[in-house]
Each structure stands twice: as structure tokens, then as C-alpha cells.
Simulated scan of single mutants.
Amino acid sequence: MKLCGIELKGNDAVLVVLEVSDEGPKHIDFPTRKIALGDSDNAADVICFQKEIAAFFVSNNISKAVIKKRAKKGKFAGGPDTFKMEALIQVIPDLEVELVTPQALAAMEKKQDIIYPNSLKKYQEVAYLVGVWVTKYSKY
């Protein structure tokens, strides 16, 4: 099974694909590492983002997306574009979507010795953690 860990940052969806097997999660390095939402006030850009990310999931046989949840209020609140991107991903047909809190990720990092693959870019580390979290603490 393939799943995609996602961190929503600014107007980018940072993507990390993991192949899940009995040996554990394995990072699959795709040329597409992030997909950007253009002008979130422009309906054509919003539709384009959803079509592009849905096509990425379909063409790479990804059956589950896991998104790092953002705070709705307070100092670390997510920007409006990230909430729009999250909703657009959640309504993609035939895609299971799960959200994971930053607190759950931090707890996992303390308990687990996370080794990042060499093929991972630095900006993908949080998305990688999101994917690893679901393989260890959730039913996938």
C-alpha cells in the first residue's frame, strides 16, 4: 500500500510517498515533491490545484493521504490557504484522508529513533514524519 504524508505550508502541499509493507515504511522518491496552490481567490487556480493533486494520487496509486493538522487559532494558527488546501484534498473521491496533530508527531519523535532517508529533502522531513506516524500509530 502507498500512502502520502503531507505538510501544508503557505500555499504549498509538501508531499512524501511511502510504500508500506511488513518490513516497515519505505520512502519512494518522486520528482513531484510539492504542489502549489496559485491564487486562492481565483476559482480556476483552486480547481487546478485539486486536479493536479488528485492526478498525483491516482497516477501513483496512493490510497491514503495523511495531513499534519494545523491549529485553527493562536500563535501557530494555519493560514487560510492551508485550510482551503486541506478541504480540497479531503473531498477527493476514493481517497482516505487522516489528520495528525503536531503534538502526536512530537510525542512520536521523542519515543522513536527516526532515521530520515538520504533521498529526502530537508523541507520534506515533517511530511515524512506524518507518513511514518500513520504506519506506527494508526490503522492503515
Rank of each mutant, 00 (worst) to 15 (best):
I6S: 02
E7T: 10
E7Q: 14
G10N: 14
N11D: 11
A13T: 05
V16L: 04
V17N: 03
L18N: 02
V20N: 05
S21E: 10
E23V: 06
E23N: 12
E23L: 13
P25R: 03
H27A: 07
I28Q: 11
P31K: 09
T32H: 00
R33C: 01
A36P: 01
G38P: 05
G38D: 07
D39Q: 04
D41V: 00
A44F: 13
D45N: 15
E52D: 14
I53W: 05
A54R: 10
A55L: 11
F56I: 05
F56T: 03
F57R: 04
V58R: 14
V58E: 13
S59Y: 03
N60F: 04
N61W: 06
I62V: 15
S63D: 09
K64I: 13
K64S: 11
A65T: 05
V66G: 09
V66A: 15
I67R: 03
K69R: 15
A71N: 14
A71Y: 15
K72T: 12
G74T: 03
G74S: 11
F76W: 11
A77V: 10
G78M: 05
G79M: 06
P80Q: 12
T82V: 15
F83G: 09
F83L: 04
K84M: 14
E86Y: 01
A87T: 10
A87S: 13
I89P: 04
I92G: 00
P93S: 12
L95H: 02
L95Y: 04
E96V: 12
T101C: 00
